[in-house]
Design a protein around this nucleic acid. Structure first.
Lengths: 145, 145
DNA sequence: TATATTATTGCAACTTAGTTGCATTTGGAT
DNA sequence: ATCCAAATGCAACTAAGTTGCAATAATATA
């Protein structure tokens, strides 16, 4: 499994003509394995000692953005959440749900909304849908407590 | 017109049982006259010399949030945008469009989307829809240049 | 395989948005 | 007019992200 991830990471870097460095492989593998948006801080935590310098992580994420390997899923609590760009269409990604209790984020890939129809004269390049509430785990907790 | 704004501001403060202070009247009037989400910084700029200390503005906005006079429309570029809460329904507000060229934000009050249907077990408390693109003015500019 | 070239990294210092603690001032109830 | 909790201002702090620059590493080429 891990080697599959690494293989996929190498493939993505190669396709984007980015040098295959330890830092990039680490950050990319983390995002691939997560399967949901992560913040800079969450990436750093997952990599622990293997994490590159924080500035380097920011720059790696920037590189990935430039070549469309990742996208900025959304901004929450003043921190961007990054995710692989492979499940997005041109003008919108799937809705993201963040649990206000445990703070986990889920991708609602099956719940894509139509584009909002905008008044005459506006050109919409991107639509972002964010949901907040309680996830199944925390709903359980609520009921029990 | 200005006195109407002031009247409305006083009414809102009274209804929320908040003391009628100079700072609160100033911030609230600014939001009423704007009719669209403003950041802390934009509020400060509009008030210019009449602006209270920046910490005070943050605390005033917090007060307004607590009593539901305003809501956090969305987070953009690491800064919250605040707007009057009077045009929102319980679970969602109208979509907000931000022009990536001139950076202005527009309220698409007529373009409210249905709620995304979430998987079993999730309780959605809030849905936020954000749009990005070019506003009529900047579209014009594009075509001419 | 060694070397050169250019991209990438790490470190320190900085910026921006927002927060905390505490002493001072003020709105409005009495 | 007085009092006191609520509101304000100031200084110092935190968190997230950015910039500049010197040191290092990945790949192309000899």
């Amino acid at each position: 499994m891990v080697s599959n991830t690494r293989q996929e990471a190498c493939r993505l870097l190669g396709g984007a003509k980015l040098r295959r460095t330890a830092g990039r492989l680490a950050v990319l593998s983390t995002l691939i394995e997560a399967g949901r948006p992560l913040t800079h801080e969450q990436i750093r935590a997952r990599l622990a000692e293997a994490a590159p310098d924080k500035v380097t992580i920011y720059r790696i994420l920037e590189n990935f953005l430039e070549v469309d390997i990742v996208h900025k899923a959304f901004l929450r609590k003043r921190a961007w959440h990054f995710e692989l760009a492979d499940r997005c269409t041109a003008r919108q990604c799937h809705p993201h749900f963040t649990c206000t209790s445990c703070n986990r984020t889920y991708c609602f890939t099956d719940a894509v909304l139509p584009m909002a129809k905008s008044p005459k004269g506006f050109t919409v390049h991107h639509q972002r849908v964010q949901l907040e509430g309680l996830c199944p785990d925390c709903n359980e907790g609520e009921r029990k407590n």
